Computed example of a mutant assay.
Amino acid sequence: MTSAEVRDPELPGRLLITERDALIPLLRQRPDTDFARPVGACPGWSVRDVLAHCSAALLRVVESRFEEGVFSPEANDRDIAERAEWTNARVVDELERGMTDAGPVIAAAGGVFDGIALGEWVHAGDVREAWGEPGAYAGAGLPYALTLLAAVTRERGHVPLHADLDDVDEPVRLGDVSGTRTPARFIGDAATLVRLYSGRTTAGASYELAGVKETELNIFG
Results as ranks from 00 to 15, higher is better:
M1H: 01
T2F: 10
A4Y: 03
A4F: 06
V6Y: 07
R7S: 08
D8K: 02
P9R: 04
E10F: 06
L11S: 02
G13D: 00
G13N: 03
L15C: 03
L16H: 07
I17D: 14
T18F: 02
T18P: 00
R20P: 03
A22M: 07
R28I: 09
Q29S: 15
D32S: 13
D34V: 04
D34T: 12
D34K: 10
A36E: 12
R37T: 08
R37N: 09
V39K: 08
V39E: 05
V39S: 10
V39F: 09
V39P: 06
G40Y: 09
G40A: 15
P43I: 02
G44A: 08
W45N: 01
S46G: 10
S46F: 02
V47F: 03
D49F: 05
V50T: 12
C54K: 05
S55W: 09
A56K: 06
A57P: 04
L58D: 03
L59F: 02
L59P: 04
V62K: 03
E63S: 13
E63I: 06
E63L: 11
R65K: 13
R65Q: 14
R65F: 03
E68R: 14
E68D: 13
V70A: 13
S72Q: 11
S72T: 15
E74V: 13
A75K: 09
A75L: 04
D77T: 14
R78Q: 12
D79M: 09
A81I: 06
E82P: 02
A84V: 09
T87W: 02
N88M: 07
A89E: 10
V91T: 15
V92E: 07
L95T: 11
E96S: 13
M99D: 01
T100E: 12
T100S: 15
D101I: 00
A102G: 07
G103N: 04
P104D: 11
P104I: 10
V105E: 09
I106S: 06
I106T: 07
A108I: 06
A108D: 14
A109E: 09
V112M: 14
V112I: 15
G115Q: 12
A117C: 11
G119H: 10
G119Q: 11
W121F: 12
V122G: 07
H123F: 04
A124V: 08
D126M: 03
V127H: 07
V127E: 03
R128P: 02
E129G: 07
E129P: 02
A130R: 06
P134Q: 07
Y137F: 15
G141I: 03
G141N: 03
G141D: 04
L142I: 01
L142N: 00
Y144D: 11
A145L: 11
L148A: 04
L148D: 00
A151L: 08
T153E: 01
G157R: 05
H158E: 11
H158V: 07
L161Q: 13
H162S: 10
H162D: 11
L165E: 00
V168H: 03
E170Y: 00
L174C: 08
L174P: 05
G179P: 13
T180E: 11
P183Q: 04
A184C: 13
R185F: 14
L193Y: 05
V194Q: 04
V194L: 15
V194H: 01
R195Y: 06
S198Y: 05
G199T: 01
R200I: 02
T202V: 15
A203E: 13
G204K: 05
A205V: 02
A205I: 01
A205M: 10
E208C: 10
G211N: 00
V212E: 08
K213I: 05
N218I: 10
I219G: 11
G221R: 14
G221K: 13
